[in-house]
Design a protein around this nucleic acid. Sequence first.
DNA 1: CGCAATTAAATTGCACCCAACTGTTTTTGC
DNA 2: GCAAAAACAGTTGGGTGCAATTTAATTGCG
Lengths: 164, 164
Amino acid sequence: MSARSHSATSGSASSPSGPAGSGFCLDDLLCFAVYSAEHAFTRAYRPLLKALDVTYPQYLILVLLWRKDGQSVKALGEQLHLDSGTLTPLLKRLEVAGIVRRARNPADERVVNIFLTDAGRALEANAQEVLRAMGSAIGLCEADAVELREKMIALRDRLNAAVE
Amino acid sequence: MSARSHSATSGSASSPSGPAGSGFCLDDLLCFAVYSAEHAFTRAYRPLLKALDVTYPQYLILVLLWRKDGQSVKALGEQLHLDSGTLTPLLKRLEVAGIVRRARNPADERVVNIFLTDAGRALEANAQEVLRAMGSAIGLCEADAVELREKMIALRDRLNAAVE
DNA sequence: CGCAATTAAATTGCACCCAACTGTTTTTGC
DNA sequence: GCAAAAACAGTTGGGTGCAATTTAATTGCG
């Protein structure tokens, strides 16, 4: 008898707006709430990141590198939950843009380490402005944002665990 | 003096795991929590939806059509926050799969209405099983799931409002 | 009525994301 | 030592998502 909650059954009284059909409402689904919030974040970031000339996933890579430079493709992938099929072309684009440098690890030729260029490091200053703008767009006090973030991380980890 | 919270400043004491660098930690960012939770949902749905032979965005379209058949491309797009550039090829794939039928609206030839086929309607029964499995993977009681969902929807709407 | 503005889909081009596979390099098990 | 297994990045192909443009149909205003 494990957890059995739905948040998304076709439940009797949960859809005040439903005009027709037998199905459930999209806004009843937690998965859709997360799906559409994610798109809203991407949309909100887009104009801000245009100033840095990077996309949102590229920005997440930069966040990791600003914190710790020279990480391997695998290490970056584990933190973002992305594999080389996504990362290799993305990192190549960052390299072409002059933001990172890719270098085989001499001690282990299987590994490629990613290093920020001077230009890549310089972007961090601009990113502070992005953070500030997003903080105000989110429109939550610090405590509420932290609580929501922790719940999302916990949800993510449970979902990942359920897929093994 | 509008809202000014970040949930994501490089804040003093928020990163217990931080080994290096000047930047902030990825898990400190609410946007990343949502980003990775969304991917976790997609990953969790993938094996379940494989039984129906549809992808996750295709499933969301079906949820809308099960509720109300014959909606226009525009109507579907407004509910999913997607435009015709995404929907047209997706709906064509559903049509090729024999799940929906696309038909120009005789009353307004600009509009294309999407109708479920018998096969498309038949999938709804299987979807109940998907819902049940996701409910247990989410691992939240109904009340917590509803609360989290409402907070995500509110966050999404604030973000969308911030982009105009 | 007639034509400009608007609306709906479709198209094009680019970036992301994943599954499946390939080619090296390193580690392991004997 | 050396062959099998594992690890890592890269490649390919298909689906998603969005900006910008195009085409066709409708509306609205003079």
